[in-house]
Amino acid sequence: MTQSRNAGLGLIGPATVLILAGFLAPTVIMAMLSLRDYSGMQGIGTDWTLSNYINVLGDWFYLEIILRTLALGLIVTLLCLILGFPLALYILRVGPLMQTTAILLVIFPLLCNIVVRSFGWMVLLSPRGVINEALLGAGLISTPLDLMFNLTGVIIGLVQIYLPFMVLLLVPALQNIPADVEAAALTLRSSRIRVFFTITVPLASPGIITGSILVFVLSISALVTPRMLGGPTYRVMATQIYDEFMTNLNWPSGAALAFVLTFIALALIWAANRVAAHLTRGIPA
């Protein structure tokens, strides 16, 4: 008994130490930092203050960034869901060979670095990029479309990068729905569309919610893609946090903004779990 308990501690020990030293300690330091006063002349002071949070939440400059980030996360999540659902259904219903191929194709982009992929999108989306050149050449447009350094570019990039996560979470969720249940609804006078919305979607809701939370949280905290496809002047929370730390050297302000982002993510996960628990009351875990 005692021995097995010691063995258990031994097994989780290394991971515990790593999390304490590598995650918890920096977080505590950051939390303290976000509560320090700051002035342009003296830098980080020694007094405790809430002014960093008040600045971030009371200034329209920051509020606009927060709202823009949340809107971006919402749009990316919805697009991933709309694009991912049919793909997940296809993967589930197709023959075994195509199934493996399709899953590999979904995973494949994940093997490629985000910076490289974002550069790829720049090549495609820039004013003299592949897409605009092709459309101009075909005579479909007379001036290049603004596909980059704006919301459109960031959305395109983020959707492409996070779509695999959504698909990989939706496939097992859909797999768990017994075929007979959908057949039963069909024989009970429901059209295929109605079966989809009253049976398939509610029963897949655990996967839909998990996938959506993941994509949303990854989107609102993404740094590289918004920076590269949004351009230097397109600000979201992650790029602003980066700028506060690295350009403005206002660490307390950056830390406060980072914690606001963290709290938004945590609140969202909590709320989504509540919704999920209600929706899936009847579904065995």
Partner: peptide, 22 residues
């Protein structure tokens, strides 16, 4: 005729109840 217009009742081996409904 598609299944939803046939007016049949079907009882499955797996019961196939809708788990998310009372």
């Amino acid at each position: 005729l598609p299944a939803n217009r046939r007016n049949v009742g079907l009882v499955f081996q797996s019961y196939a109840l809708f788990p998310h409904m009372t």
